[in-house]
């Protein structure tokens, strides 16, 4: 069974962390992953940086620009991740935009992910219908969960469709926004969390965007299986460097 599916069966709320590969320094990727696991993080999204990340706010954009400038590429990331499964056992996902994956070759990309032990992909600009038609069989043949996003604006019909083609969890975007925008949840947002949790979907939901601290983590996981922190962690790396990861994770839970 895929590590993501296994993890989702554990009787706990999951803390998932996103970081941009190659940031702050090109060579930080593996040690950040190891430190996050060591400090009790349940799942990691490794950001494959892209020059034009449409769904991201300034924090992740800037870290991506810096990472690319540092020399991060798809080839480089795979090179760094060789052997990661000797030391790390929590689920690892790659989150990135579709163009770099397309240039690498979707088939080759999936093969490489399987070889390394990547469990899933989050590709915000790969639409669900295109995935279903063209890429689903390739992803599944390589044991990869593909994770789709839903937002407060996503219709019930579409949520049910996304649920039907998902095979891990659904990434619930907390509000109509790019990453790193909001602080704290409004009543409307809590209503939306509740509404989705009452839909009793086949796939559990993990909430992301706007989760930055212990309070927002607690609130989100009241309604969902877990939550993803991205921009707040990148900011922490920017301000405190890579040696204070334990402190960041402890402050969340």
């Amino acid at each position: 069974m895929n590590r993501i599916n296994q993890k989702l069966q554990e009787d706990k709320k999951l803390l998932s962390i996103y970081f941009t590969a190659g940031y702050p320094n090109l060579g930080d990727t593996v040690s950040i992953i190891q430190d996050l696991e060591k400090n009790g993080v349940d799942m990691i999204e490794i950001g494959l940086p892209f020059s034009d990340p449409l769904a991201d706010g300034p924090t992740i954009q800037e870290s991506s620009t810096k990472a690319i400038r540092n020399g991060m590429t798809t080839h480089k990331l795979f090179e760094q991740l060789q052997g990661i499964r000797d030391t790390v056992s929590i689920p690892l996902l790659i989150m990135g935009y579709f163009n770099p994956i397309l240039q690498y070759g979707v088939q080759e990309f999936c093969e490489k992910c399987q070889e390394i032990g990547i469990d899933g992909l989050i590709i915000p600009d790969l639409p669900v219908d295109v995935y279903n038609e063209k890429y689903k069989t390739i992803f599944e043949a390589h044991g990869l969960n593909n994770v789709f996003l839903i937002t407060p604006q996503t219709s019930v019909e579409r949520i049910n469709f996304i649920d039907s083609v998902s095979n891990g969890f659904i990434y619930m975007v907390s509000s109509a926004s790019v990453t790193g925008s909001s602080t704290g949840f409004s009543n409307d947002t809590r209503e939306y969390f509740k509404r989705i949790s009452e839909m009793k979907l086949k796939n559990p939901q993990v909430i992301g965007f706007g989760i930055s601290d212990s309070e927002s983590f607690q609130q989100a996981t009241k309604f969902a299986k877990g939550a993803i922190i991205g921009s707040a962690f990148i900011k922490h790396l920017t301000n405190k460097g890579t040696s204070k990861i334990a402190e960041f994770v402890k402050n969340i839970r």
């Binding site: 639409p127 937002t151 219709s155 975007v173």
Partner: peptide, 11 residues
């Protein structure tokens, strides 16, 4: 062509 957009833009 097509529409390779994040879900947030879909509606």
């Amino acid at each position: 062509g097509g529409a390779y957009i994040p879900e947030m833009l879909y509606p």
